[in-house]
Amino acid sequence: MPKAKVHSGAAKRFKKSAGGYKRKSANKSHILTKMTTKRKRQLRGTSLVDASDKKAIDRMLRAN
């Protein structure tokens, strides 16, 4: 039986923490010149993944 592989896209985007999975905000990668400084500042940092998505991420990251 081959070893089960982790979903590489999910592995790059989510980190396991005590409270669940950490994630970064979207819309912060390019074309930032038209975005206000306030908006860019609010998109900094990380937040936790919603409980409704936790089961899907557990499956993608093969966490038990």
Rank of each mutant, 00 (worst) to 15 (best):
N27R: 11
P2W: 05
Y21M: 06
N27K: 12
R23K: 11
M60T: 02
H7C: 09
M1H: 12
S29H: 10
K34Y: 14
I31D: 14
S17P: 05
R13D: 06
A11W: 01
M35Q: 14
G45L: 03
S8F: 07
S29Y: 13
V6M: 04
S47L: 03
R23C: 04
S8Y: 09
T33Y: 05
R23E: 01
I31T: 11
Q42S: 11
K38E: 15
T36Y: 00
K15Y: 02
S29R: 15
K55P: 08
G19S: 12
A56C: 07
K34A: 14
A26W: 05
L43W: 08
Y21W: 07
K28Y: 13
S29C: 05
S52T: 14
K5C: 00
S29L: 09
V6A: 04
M35P: 10
M60R: 02
M60H: 01
S17A: 08
S8L: 07
R41Y: 12
S25P: 11
A4N: 11
G45W: 09
G20T: 00
N27H: 14
H7N: 15
G45M: 07
G20W: 02
K22F: 01
A10L: 04
K28P: 04
R23V: 08
V6G: 01
K40A: 05
A4T: 10
L43T: 14
F14G: 03
I57Y: 01
I57T: 03
A10Y: 06
Y21C: 04
K38I: 10
A56D: 12
A18S: 14
G19R: 12
R59P: 05
K22L: 11
K28W: 08
L61Q: 01
K54I: 13
R41N: 15
R41S: 15
A63H: 15
N64A: 13
